[in-house]
Every structure is written in C-alpha cells, then in structure tokens.
Amino acid sequence: MFDYQAPANLLQDKVILVTGAGSGIGRTAAISYAAHGATVILLGRTLDKLEAVYDEIEAAGYPQPALVPLNLDSAPEHDFDELASTLNQEFGRLDGILHNAGILGVRTPLSSYDPVIWQQVMQVNVTAPFMLTQALMPLLEKAENASIIFTSSGVGRQGRAFWGAYSVSKFATEGMMQVLADELENISNIRCNCINPGATRTQMRTTAYPAENPADNPAAEEIMPLYLYLMGNDSLTTNGQSLNAQ
C-alpha cells in the first residue's frame, strides 16, 4: 500500500478522530485526512501543539477541525463517556478513529523495569485505546461504514530484548485489534486493522535510537498512503489485518 494513490475526495464529509494529533505521525495523518476532505477531531495532551495543527489545517482551507485536549495517561472512564456525548451532539456519528498516541517507556531488561513506567505505558498504549473505542462504538455504528486503525510495531510481532512494556503493549494492541475485528466481522459496518509504521522520522524513533541519523528514515508524509487507504472506502473489505506502511 506504500504506492496507493488516494483520490482527492477520498474522505469527503467523513468525521475522523486522531489521537496523538499534536506531533509526529498523528499530526501528519490529521493534516492528510483533512486534505482529503475529512473533518478531523484532534486529540492530544498538549493544547499548544493541537492549536498549531488546527491553524495549519484552517490556513490550508480544509474542513474546520475540532480540538480535544485529553491526557490519556490519566483520563478516567467518565472523560471518554463525556467525549462521546460531546461528539454525538456535535457530529452525530464517527467515521473513523486513528489510535496513534503512544509512549515508549524505557529500554531496559524486564528484570529491572520500573513498575510505575510499565503501568503508564500500558495505560496509554492499551487501556486508553480500549476505553476510547468502547465509548465511541455507538457513534461508529451510526456511520455508513467506519474504520478503526490501531498502531502496532515490529516489536509487537516479534519480541525483542530491552523493549519491555512498549513491545508487550504492541502485542496487546495486535490482539485487541484481532479480537475486535473478529467480533464485528459480518455483523457490523466497522472494520479494524493495525498499521506498523516502521522506522519513521519522529521524536519517538530518535529517543529509541539516539545514534541513528534521522534523515535515513522516511518522513511521516511518505508513509501516509496506507493511513489513507485504511481510512477510506477502498478498504471496505479489509478487516483484521496487520499491515506495514513501508
């Protein structure tokens, strides 16, 4: 799908929520979705970053986005329920979710892994996407068809030393996607898939590989074809798949 050519109106009139939309892949995906016609709901923990993305989308003349400042690390269940209520009032449905937000934790042996950091990684990478998806399911069901995209990783398919909670959280993400896709197949208008973005020029990648030259990796813009494909109607029959953006 790296060479997928998205029609200019691929996401016309769709309402799509992107988590971690303030920077990195989330920011790029939000702008790309807006450029293809979507009304994008920008969710993230840092308001200044969200506002910058909001301004960029507006300046380009794309559909007006919405802002949702929310810290997935500490958000209680009622925050997700309140978000669902607000989106229902504002939009009446939801055509897609890109679960992009995630944290790396630390790279250290499991024998010395800090349990507090472990819980934090699991909260942001696994529990929050579960709670958000659950709360927004009624809105997804109101769409003609809807797409849920989870973010995986190569270390979520094959465990690797020192990747600790991040690796385990991505295994859990793959499992959550597969369970949900199997539950919804043939009885729902909702499809679920995973994207492994691969080595990309992001801050998380720099943190994980500080000695690496960032210029050796593609920019987030270069891996958008798969993000567009899975969110648009060309992927209506794609469900329960874990795909590579590169």
Rank of each mutant, 00 (worst) to 15 (best):
G26L: 13
N193Q: 06
T206S: 12
Q120A: 04
G20E: 01
L236Q: 05
L47G: 08
S74R: 05
S112C: 08
M231F: 02
I57F: 11
S169A: 14
G37V: 15
A135L: 05
K49L: 13
A84H: 02
F80Y: 12
R160N: 08
L104S: 04
K170R: 07
L139P: 00
N186I: 01
P197C: 13
V18T: 08
Q241S: 00
E77D: 09
F91G: 03
Q64D: 07
F162D: 15
V168S: 06
Y54H: 14
A161Y: 06
P210D: 11
Q123T: 09
R205S: 07
R107W: 00
T207H: 02
N100E: 03
S169H: 13
T46W: 05
Q203T: 15
R93C: 04
E51T: 13
F162H: 11
P63H: 07
L43G: 05
Q12R: 14
P65E: 05
R93Q: 11
V124L: 00
G102A: 09
P225G: 01
Q241Y: 04
N196C: 12
L184I: 12
T46D: 14
P214S: 11
G92L: 02
M231A: 12
T207M: 04
Y33C: 12
P214Y: 10
Y33I: 15
A66P: 03
A38Q: 10
K142F: 04
D114I: 10
Q119A: 10
R160L: 09
E90D: 06
D95G: 04
G96W: 03
V168Q: 05
T200M: 10
E174Q: 12
G44M: 14
Q246I: 02
I187P: 02
S167Y: 04
Y4G: 07
P214E: 14
P197K: 07
D3I: 11
T173D: 02
A219Y: 03
T151P: 02
L226R: 00
E90S: 06
E77W: 09
M1Y: 12
I117Y: 03
A161C: 05
E141T: 08
A84Y: 08
D13W: 03
G37P: 15
Q89S: 01
N186W: 05
E51D: 15
G26K: 09
A84M: 07
I97L: 08
